[in-house]
Design a protein around this nucleic acid. Structure first.
Length: 455
RNA sequence: GUGGUUGUAGUUCAGUUGGUUAGAACGUCGGAUUGUGGUUCCGAAGGUCGUGGGUUCAAAUCCCAUCAUCCACCCCA
């Protein structure tokens, strides 16, 4: 038992059955991305730590997986430093690489590195795993896939509009009912300004983000605990209590934030975005949600979050605009906006709501029963012909007992089985069996290919 | 990083107040059935009871430690 092999905490193996489902999600998402003119890139699993550290806040740095230097990495470390046993000071000496924490920062690095070869606006998508040294729990893993789409090098709000359309398109195809929550970091900044707590924008947004979850009272308590003045908390109350639809809310906000330049800017952006969206026949619900604050520190404009309506789970997609992401890598004033689809959670939703399509193009469609050497030779040309026609076909590799071979086909959910033994060879035919109905028919090679092509 | 939960066959779990040889279901393999799967019947294999220590005549069971696991918090997809 103790010696049984296992994989690290928070990581997973994917069986063939799971891979078929995962690929369904990835392929569908990619198809939509391409439809809007996005192109794929990939970046390495590991980045230089200098690229990663300091981009995700203090908490994020702790969650970075670091890779030990190769060779005798301790020999270069001074004895004093070793004796000190201070991990934070020692780490930079023995580790220079880390596993990527998300896809956005490597993308920013990519853009800066290839700025002269890239034509802006640059629209890319990227579907790769990321790693976080988090403690795993329900729906959270240490290795998981992100599906990112970003446009970089364009300030136009049209990009935000198209991202919402992509979200709508993807979830429409996946048959998941969603609600897209939209907010704007500038509005949050405006709120902080109006209540006189400019510097505490992060604390304030993190706290009000929990409004849904822990309620107004606890939010206020947390604000007070973080050092936000009572006066400011008082001023915040009417904002937290805003009601009505998105248009009504923006109207009220406009009045509240009148004295804040940045706040008004945010309201203007939101108004424009909603005016576009209202003219599109979106299937998903879209609403302004002022409590939506989560997200990385680098968001500066729109913030998105998508939730499944019929299923209680965290967000299944999220993103926003960041005005100066590439600035930290030496390329200032390049604005980008993007969203990331959470493949793992989408998988969970589809599984539990039974929304995966039953038939797959990835599995075997027909299996030939193996009756022996002579029969193998008889089957091989037809197998080749089937494959030439794009039909997934296989022959059982051993002349095993009929029961074993049929069982194999059954377990693998192969819908058709071909039996070709002595009788068929003499008649130059094949017996095709439908595994679901049990029906059998005797056909020649051409008919076999023809029938299976049409299924 | 903090708090809690649970560790027994490949999997899900029984296992009485500590008592001889630790059970079941499902799965796997074989047979009933040498050209017909899913159903049925019969049989078999499979365990250092997470690991280490302690208490006891005796430990899967009680105690301690440790590791793993799942859940919640912080944070996040």
């Amino acid at each position: 038992m103790a010696q049984k092999p296992s994989i690290p905490k928070g990581t997973r193996d994917f069986s063939p059955v799971e891979m078929v489902k995962r690929n369904y999600i990835f392929d569908l998402i990619k198809e939509v991305f391409r439809l809007y003119g996005f192109q794929p890139i990939e970046t390495p699993a590991m980045e230089n730590l200098s690229t990663l550290t300091g981009k995700y806040g203090e908490e994020g740095d702790k969650l970075l997986f670091k890779i030990l230097n190769s060779g005798d990495f301790l020999s270069k470390v001074s004895d004093e430093l070793l004796d000190e046993k201070n991990s934070n000071k020692l780490t930079p000496k023995i580790s220079e690489k880390g596993l990527r924490y998300d896809l956005t920062v490597p993308f920013a690095r990519f853009v800066v590195q290839y700025q002269n070869e890239i034509t802006f606006p640059f629209k890319r998508y990227q579907i790769q795993p990321v790693w976080r040294a988090d403690r795993p729990q329900k729906g959270r893993y240490r290795e998981f896939y992100q599906c990112d789409v970003d446009v970089i090098g364009s300030n136009s709000l049209l990009n935000e509009v198209e991202l919402v359309q992509i979200i709508d398109d993807v979830f429409k195809r996946l048959k998941i009912n969603t609600i897209v929550k939209i907010n704007n970091r500038k509005i949050l900044a405006g709120i902080a300004e109006v209540i006189g707590e400019n510097d505490r924008i992060i604390d304030i947004t993190v706290a009000i983000d929990k409004l849904d979850k822990i309620g107004l009272e606890k939010v206020n308590a947390e604000l007070a605990e973080k050092g936000v003045s009572n006066e400011a908390i008082e001023k915040l109350q009417p904002i937290l209590a805003l009601e009505g639809n998105s248009i009504e809310k923006t109207a009220q906000l406009e009045a509240i934030l009148a004295t804040s330049e940045i706040g008004i800017k945010g309201v203007t952006e939101i108004k424009k975005l909603f005016s576009y969206l209202n003219n599109l026949s979106l299937q998903t619900e879209v609403e302004l949600d002022l409590t939506l604050a989560r997200g990385l520190n680098y968001y500066t404009g729109a913030i998105f979050e998508v939730k499944a309506k019929d299923f209680e789970i965290g967000s299944i997609c999220g993103g926003g605009r960041y005005d100066d992401l590439t600035g930290i890598f030496g390329l200032p004033n390049v604005s980008g906006v993007g969203v990331s689809f959470g493949a793992e959670r989408i998988y969970d939703v589809l599984t539990q709501m039974n929304l995966f399509p039953s038939k797959s193009t990835e599995t075997t469609k027909v299996m030939f029963v193996n009756f022996g050497e002579k029969e193998e030779a008889y089957c091989l040309p037809v197998l080749a012909e089937l494959r030439k026609n794009g039909i997934n076909a296989e022959i059982f590799p051993d002349n095993a007992k009929m029961q074993k071979q049929m069982n194999y086909a059954n377990k693998k959910e192969i819908p058709y089985v071909v039996l070709a033994g002595e009788t068929e060879i003499q008649a130059k035919s094949f017996t095709l069996k439908n595994m679901e109905s049990g029906e059998q028919q005797n056909v020649n090679a051409a008919e076999l290919v023809d029938i299976l092509s049409r299924q």
